[in-house]
């Protein structure tokens, strides 16, 4: 049962409800970081890593600090029960993600300076990437597409983080490949840049709609 659910989460996050093309999360790097395949791979891997880590940490924060049903804060209130801190969800998640991104930035600067330079401004901007906060919120709100309306378990959350990141990486690489080819094509002056990328994205979204036949 558990394995089947995990498998469904992976299929849905990568193909059927892709984070970029079907849920519209993380469009900024999709348009901004898809000029070259090499930087697309670097960006996709960095986002996958942050999404997986953020899924794990935000799940722990939400479960053990914010949600009154499972919170450990209750131990310190001398029998008055745990306070309902769920209204702090957005703020605490965004702080966790900002700290994570800062950490990765420092790590890359020291260990992989070439990737650090290639990602440029998009690295600090990951702190405000909708895909990362999005997956954290989706984890605690449940996965309605496959009938889970409550919070996901820890394993499911991390799976959704990794799978969502993998879907993102896939789209980024496909898009970068298409855009490298498109540089050799004559395009009307007004369609150059973002407009043609939008239309390409639309066509890719159409193609990915075909995967909805996989749903079970």
């Amino acid at each position: 049962m558990e394995i089947k659910v995990l498998f469904m989460i992976i299929i849905y996050s990568v193909l059927i409800q892709n984070f970029v093309l079907s849920r519209f999360l993380g469009l900024c790097p999709f348009f901004g970081c898809s000029q070259r395949i090499s930087s697309a791979i670097g960006m996709g891997c960095a986002i996958t890593f942050v999404m997986a880590l953020a899924s794990a940490i935000t799940w722990i924060v939400y479960t053990y600090l914010l949600d009154p049903a499972t919170s450990i804060v209750g131990f310190f209130t001398e029998g008055n029960g745990a306070p309902d801190l769920r209204f702090l969800r957005t703020i605490s998640f965004i702080l966790v993600i900002a700290v994570l991104v800062q950490f990765i930035e420092m790590f890359l600067q020291k260990k992989v300076p070439s990737l650090y330079r290639a990602l440029g401004i998009f690295l600090p901007l990951m702190a405000t990437n909708c895909a990362i906060l999005g997956v954290a919120v989706l984890n605690v709100e449940g996965f309605t597409a496959i009938g889970i309306h409550t919070k996901l378990t820890f394993i499911q959350s991390v799976t959704q983080g990794v799978a969502g990141g993998a879907g993102f990486l896939l789209i980024l690489i496909l898009m970068a490949g298409l855009r490298e080819k498109m540089e050799l094509v004559t395009i009307p002056e007004s369609m150059k840049g973002v407009p043609i990328a939008c239309v390409t994205g639309g066509l890719m979204a159409l193609a990915f709609m075909g995967f909805s036949g996989l749903s079970f």
């Binding site: 093309l21 369609m191 239309v199 639309g202 979204a205 159409l206």
Partner: peptide, 24 residues
């Protein structure tokens, strides 16, 4: 198609292109 995700991409792309054409 227009209320599916793909339609959103198309409409946005053509609107931005139209504005750019006007500028040019």
């Amino acid at each position: 198609l227009m209320i599916l995700p793909a339609g959103g991409f198309f409409i946005l792309g053509f609107l931005v292109a139209a504005l750019k054409l006007y500028d040019l």
